[in-house]
Amino acid sequence: MAKTSTKNQWKAWLYLLPTLVLLGVFTVWPIINTVRMSLLEGYNGLAMIRGETFEFGFANFVDVATYAGFINCLGNTLLLCVITVPISTMLALLIAVALNSIKFIRKGMQTIFFLPYVTNSIAIGMVFMAMFSMVGGSATNAPDSVGIINNIIKAFGGKPINWVNGKISGYDPSERWANMAVLIIYIVWNALPFKILVLLGGLQGVNKQYYDAAKIDGTSRFRTFWRITVPLLSPMIAYVVITGFIGGFKEYSSVVGIFGNNMGPAHTNFRTNMNTMVGYIYDSLKDNNQGQASAAALILFAIIFVVTMINLYVSKKKVHY
């Protein structure tokens, strides 16, 4: 047996070769290279080609961590994750339960809720920008045109809010929350379909007899939801939360879609814009600063890893498989 297997081993390797080559080139090597680049101080691709050499050290990490722009990005990302993941999960759960309890327009509603999932996120981001926009005007003059949201606010007698377009006169920190709100609404809305899909699938797998039993025991609706539905769905919820956090930390395209290349209203700079971690990495690469980009990527990886571990630890205690 052993003999034949060694004899034919080259065949096995041959069959595995295409996969191994692809994995090696596109996965393993990039990971190794990222680590390498992050550990070469001030690494720069172009300089490397010119023949410069770089010292080994942790300077990239130190630079990244102390850079004001990076701190801003990290703060934005964490804030988005912490706010959007719980909101979208709860909303998705409620919508899934509601969808599950109706028979008659379920199919149509399912389609509607699923639409964001199949639509280009940049395109939707631009639609959001149009909806929330307020073009022209200044602090003193009334704006030339407003988006639909501001129109609605005006119709109810409110003052238009600078959702996505900053004041020309300068940065106003109070508007940061308006910007953030748009981003949150967009991310939650964009994250819903997948979560609804998973939770609805889970709900349909729950034995209806538990609800019959609860009904006979006179359980109130809220208690049925909280004591029966949620625990029975907990594996799905855990899955949705974990993937939600991972997705949240990688948020990038939504910001580009809504705020454009500046990653924030026109008047903001790298300290104050809505940039995220991935956006920072992208910007660093654009500036041919691969060393810092790699370091930031590894930091992001470490954060996601830690958060996922926490998630798993919590779900181990709370989830009933």
Partner: peptide, 17 residues
């Protein structure tokens, strides 16, 4: 719930969690 009945289901429907 207002009938005052107890029902034992064929596969018991005990809450697994």
């Amino acid at each position: 719930e207002n009938r005052g009945i107890g029902l034992v289901f064929q596969n018991y429907a005990l809450y697994p969690h």
